[in-house]
């Protein structure tokens, strides 16, 4: 049982990291950034590229090398998110939501198959792998690497929480999410804040991508699709637009899947997870932490 919980929490922390980007972007401009999962994939491939170029230098350093790569990949995916917003989403601000969503679906296709053109359809294998000793905690096997990855995820999330709640940028973000027009009148540079939001959200997805690459080892151009879907679900379970909610939602979904697999078999897991989502939303439409918001008229 503890093993199940641990598996769930570990997977859930990946979901949470990706869900954060979804929820931040949604919270601020009410956009479901469908291409978000693909930024996760992009992060994994940037990390792969850097590690391949750095070659032998990195293999000896292991975890430290991965940390450096992590930062580079975050910068690159953050910039990619910035460009995505500038090119694809900003011209459509104020357009009907559905049009923006279609653009996002288009961006998702373009990133996935653009990467396929660059890297080919075959999966790639990370040159540096995290594998190591495991310790037994209350009957669950936990590797040092898993623990460190969770630690990184928690640190990133804590940093984000501080950024949003404790800094001027964060206050501006919250203001825009409340009322973009009023925020503009109050002297907030709305474009810049939205751009920053995209940068941060995308960088977090990129970080998750590198961590997944380093831990699991296999990356391919479609790897972002499923996790994007799951992160989206996690964000909704947590109450979309709410940062703590995204973290909780991610962990909840991870646990749900882990326990669902054990109870009713792997082939029914997604049915279980999605049915739970539907029932949950019917009973509590705002998610775990979502506030009761009326749709803006």
């Amino acid at each position: 049982m503890t093993q199940l919980l641990w598996n769930g929490l570990f997977v859930g922390s990946f979901y949470a990291l990706v869900a954060l980007g979804y929820t931040m972007v949604y919270g601020i401009i009410r956009l479901l950034n469908f291409a978000h999962g693909d930024l996760y994939m992009l992060g994994a491939f940037v990390g792969f590229g850097v590690l391949s170029v750095a070659g032998g230098l990195a293999t000896g350093l292991g975890f430290v090398a991965l940390l450096i790569v992590l930062i580079i990949a975050m910068l690159v995916t953050g910039t990619a998110g910035l460009l995505l917003e500038r090119i694809a989403y900003r011209p459509l601000r104020g357009a009907p939501r559905l049009s923006v969503l279609i653009t996002a679906v288009g961006a998702s296709f373009a990133i996935e198959y653009g990467m396929r053109l660059v890297a080919g359809p075959n999966p790639e294998v990370y040159p540096v792998r995290l594998a190591g000793d495991s310790v037994n905690v209350l009957g669950a096997r936990i590797t040092i690497q898993q623990a460190s990855l969770i630690l990184i995820a928690v640190l990133l999330m804590a940093g984000l929480q501080w950024l949003v709640m404790g800094t001027g940028t964060g206050r501006a973000m919250r203001a825009i999410s409340q009322d973009p027009t009023a925020a503009l009148y109050m002297g907030i540079n709305v474009d810049a804040v939205i751009a920053r939001t995209f940068f941060i959200g995308s960088a977090l997805a990129g970080a998750a991508g590198v961590m997944a690459g380093g831990y699991y080892g296999k990356i391919d151009f479609l790897m972002g699709f499923i996790i994007g879907l799951k992160a989206f679900t996690a964000a909704v379970i947590g109450g979309i637009g709410n940062i703590k909610g995204a973290m909780l939602g991610g962990l909840a979904l991870g646990l749900l899947e882990s326990i669902g697999t054990a109870w009713i078999g792997g082939q029914w897991r997604d049915v279980f997870a999605f049915s739970f989502l539907i029932i949950f939303l019917t009973l509590r439409p705002t998610g775990i932490l979502g506030e009761r918001v009326t749709e803006r008229v």
């Binding site: 199940l4 997977v11 990946f14 479609l222 499923i226 996790i227 882990s258 697999t261 054990a262 082939q267």
Partner: peptide
């Protein structure tokens, strides 16, 4: 027996189930 979903990264839940 255990069926997994192709295209994912983490199969630890399936692995835990099959090792039972």
């Amino acid at each position: 027996r255990e069926s997994v979903t192709a295209g994912e990264s983490d199969y630890s839940a399936n692995v835990t189930a099959i090792l039972k």
